[in-house]
C-alpha cells in the first residue's frame, strides 16, 4: 500500500532514535569499567555474611553499570577474584537492570509509574531469590566449567576480546581512548539486536496484529509467557528494551510487559550462549528456568490481582 513504507520507517526510526543514546551510554560505561575499575576492590568490599552479601549483589549494578552482554565476563572475573557464588549469581541476573542507565531509559519510556518501580522490585526479588538458592553450593568449581576458571577475561564482543586491556591501571587519556574503542565494538554487537528488535516492533505497529495474537495478548496468563519468550528471542540490550516494550504495551497486558522487562535482561539467546561458555550445563538450565518461573509467577499474580 502506498505510504506504508514511510509509516514503517517513521515507527522504526522513532524507536531507534530514542534508544540509541541509552545504548551508547551503556556501552561507554561498560568500556570505562573494563579499563578503569579493578575488580579486586569490589570483592574486598563485600560483607562476609552470605545472605547479606547476596542482597548486596543485587545492588552492585549501580557500581558496575553493565548490560547483559558485559555482565558475564565481569562476573567471571569477579569469581576468579574470590566473589562468593551466590553473590555472583545475583549480580549476574540483576546487574543488567539495576543500573543508572536502565533507570533513565525506563523512566524516559514509561515515566514515573508502576512499570518503572515494579521492574526494579521484581528484578531484585528474582535475582536475590535465585542467588539464595546458590548459597547452598559454595564451591565455584562445581558450577563453573573447569577450563573457564582461569581463562583471560574478554568483553561482550569479539572486538573487546581482541583488545583485552592489560592488567595494570591505564593512564587517563589512552585509557579513555581504549574505553571508546571497546564501546564501539560493543555498540555494533548490541546495535544489531536493537535494530532487528525495532524492525519487528515497527512492523507490528504498522501492520497491526491479527485477532489470534490480540486474544493472546490480553490473556493474563498466556500474555506473560509470550512476552517472556519474546524477550528471550529478541535479545535486546537492557538499556533499550523499554522502548520496544512501549511498542508492545498498547496490545499486551501490563504484567506481561513487566515480565519482558524483568526476564529479558536476565536470560536471552545471547546471554545463554555466554552462560554456556562459563557455567556447567546443568547450572545454565537452572539459570534459565528459575528466573522464568519466578518472573512468570509474579507477573501473572499482578495481572490477576492488580488493576494498573
Amino acid at each position: 500500500m502506498d505510504g506504508t513504507l514511510e509509516i514503517f520507517a517513521t515507527r522504526f526510526l522513532g524507536i531507534f532514535i530514542e534508544a540509541v543514546p541509552f545504548l551508547l551510554l551503556g556501552t561507554l560505561a561498560s568500556g570505562l569499567i573494563e579499563v578503569f575499575i579493578r575488580k579486586e576492590d569490589i570483592v574486598r568490599l563485600m560483607p562476609r555474611n552470605p545472605v547479606l552479601a547476596t542482597a548486596m549483589g543485587g545492588g552492585m549494578g549501580f557500581i558496575f553499570p553493565v548490560c547483559e552482554c558485559g555482565v558475564v565476563p565481569v562476573t567471571r572475573r569477579l569469581f576468579n577474584k574470590g566473589l562468593p557464588l551466590s553473590v555472583g549469581i545475583t549480580f549476574l541476573l540483576s546487574a543488567p537492570v539495576m543500573n543508572p542507565v536502565v533507570v533513565a531509559s525506563t523512566y524516559a519510556a514509561f515515566g514515573w509509574g508502576p512499570v518503572l518501580v515494579l521492574r526494579f522490585v521484581m528484578t531484585a526479588i528474582v535475582a536475590i531469590g535465585v542467588g539464595l538458592v546458590f548459597t547452598l553450593q559454595t564451591r565455584p568449581q562445581r558450577i563453573l566449567r573447569p577450563r573457564m576458571v582461569a581463562l583471560p577475561i574478554s568483553g561482550g564482543s569479539a572486538e573487546a576480546a581482541q583488545l583485552a586491556p592489560s592488567p595494570q591501571r591505564m593512564p587517563l587519556l589512552p585509557g579513555l581512548q581504549r574505553a571508546l574503542v571497546l564501546a564501539r565494538g560493543e555498540f555494533f554487537e548490541m546495535g544489531r539486536y536493537l535494530i532487528l528488535g525495532s524492525l519487528i516492533a515497527a512492523a507490528m505497529g504498522t501492520f497491526g496484529v491479527d485477532k489470534d495474537i490480540e486474544a493472546l495478548a490480553s490473556n493474563p496468563v498466556n500474555s506473560v509467557f509470550i512476552m517472556q519468550l519474546t524477550g528471550f528471542v529478541l535479545s535486546v540490550c537492557s538499556t533499550v528494551d523499554s522502548f520496544l516494550a512501549l511498542a508492545f504495551a498498547n496490545t499486551f497486558t501490563t504484567g506481561s510487559i513487566l515480565a519482558f522487562l524483568v526476564y529479558g535482561p536476565m536470560v536471552d539467546i545471547k546471554s545463554t550462549m555466554m552462560y554456556l561458555g562459563v557455567f556447567r550445563r546443568k547450572i545454565v538450565a537452572y539459570l534459565i528456568i528459575l528466573p522464568f518461573l519466578i518472573t512468570a509467577l509474579i507477573s501473572i499474580f499482578l495481572n490477576l490481582n492488580v488493576a494498573f
Partner: peptide
C-alpha cells in the same frame, strides 16, 4: 544491519504518522 537506520532515514521520505497508521 547497523546501516539500516541510515538507509531508512535518508532513503525514505520522512513523514509523521498519518491516517494510514491507524490500524
Amino acid at each position: 544491519i547497523v546501516t539500516i537506520p541510515l538507509v531508512l532515514g535518508l532513503g525514505v521520505p520522512a513523514r509523521p504518522l498519518s491516517s494510514q497508521a491507524i490500524t
